[in-house]
Write a protein that binds this DNA or RNA. Structure first.
Length: 310
DNA sequence: CTCGATCCCTGGACGC
DNA sequence: TGCGTCCAGGGATCGA
């Protein structure tokens, strides 16, 4: 399941393999995960100028290439939904970007054009070196959107701080300003962008903080520790090219290695690496949360709003 | 403001 | 072998 380290891994792979390539044509299969499928046609004729990560999103920034008429000689495949750069009437005015979210099972990477599509390949972009950039996603929990500068800025403005760049002061402020459980808080992309279920659990285990602790009751020292271990874990995971639980593959189709270093996630019933107490699993914020009941002390029962009279 | 429930979707695990 | 059932989960949405 792609979270920050996995997306970063894919982004780095794509930079190596497709940066600077021009997109010649666009093929779309199932499109229910694309904001505005028709707009994807505007990709044709544009160059991939930069590739960035924003939280769990990938951002392929595009530059229009001034070429008179594109007649992409890609042969005449089943042209049912092959969209080519047609008349220069639709040249984008402002710099645009392709926003990609991998959801649970999304994969994005270049492929030789003569390799048959995977069963769940839904988008294929023909590149000017003959390869194709393909998006494959069995569950289609991912998202793809072609956005011009304005809407893109609007989209990105909703997200919280990057956990790798946030200062200690801002981290603590964000954590301690929310009257919600720390697990839900870490998963909330408007608080911190890029943290998902695995790295939330791993960082809480390492910081010895129970997932049901309330943000406002996290003290300054705990917040500082949480930020430090979260950054450490994310950086380690990036070096290990992410966690491959079931589906994740990088842009080259290779799995990551960090799953071997998980201390809590997916370890229900297995002994805690610190104290040998069996790891437990509970549902917090609707998500499986793995923690050590001894190292991560449970908060006192939350007091519900008491009505003076009813 | 925060909560849980529900939906989206498919593959894999499991039981019979 | 082949069903049916349950589960995983990021995110949107909705009512409480």
């Amino acid at each position: 399941m792609p979270e920050l380290p996995e997306v970063e891994t894919v982004v780095r792979g794509l930079r190596q393999s497709i940066l600077g390539r021009k997109i010649l044509s666009v093929w779309i299969g199932k499109s229910d995960f694309i904001d505005n499928p028709v707009a994807l046609a505007l990709l044709a004729g544009q160059q991939i100028e930069s590739i960035e990560r924003f939280g769990k999103f990938m951002l392929l920034r595009l530059a229009s290439v001034e070429v008179a008429s594109q007649s992409a000689n890609v042969g005449t495949e089943e042209s049912t939904s092959v969209l080519e750069a047609n008349d220069a009437s639709s040249v984008p005015a402002s710099p645009a970007a392709l926003l990609v979210h991998l959801g649970m099972t999304g994969q994005l990477g270049p492929s030789r054009a003569d390799v048959p599509f995977d069963k769940h390949t839904h988008v294929s972009l023909t590149l000017d070196d003959g390869r194709e950039l393909r998006y494959t996603d069995a569950r289609r929990f991912g998202r793809m959107a072609y956005l011009t500068a304005g809407p893109l800025a609007q989209e990105l403005a909703c997200f919280g701080a990057d956990p790798l760049e946030v200062s200690a002061a801002e981290f603590a402020a964000r954590v301690r300003s929310r009257n919600t459980r720390i697990k839900a808080l870490l998963l909330d992309q408007t608080v911190f962008r890029g943290v998902g279920n695995i790295y939330a659990d791993e960082s809480l285990w390492r910081a010895k903080i129970h997932p049901a602790r309330v943000g406002t009751r996290i003290n300054a020292k705990e917040a500082a520790t949480l930020r430090r271990v979260l950054q450490h874990i994310l950086n380690r995971a990036i070096i290990m090219r992410g966690s491959s639980i079931s589906d994740f593959l990088d842009a080259n189709g290779e799995p990551g290695e960090y799953q071997r270093h998980h201390r809590a996630y997916g370890r229900e019933g297995k002994p805690c690496y610190r104290c040998r107490t069996p790891i437990r699993r509970v549902i917090v914020a609707g998500r499986s949360s793995y923690f050590c009941p001894k190292c991560q002390r449970a908060p006192r029962i939350r007091k519900h709003k008491r009505r003076q009279r009813s």
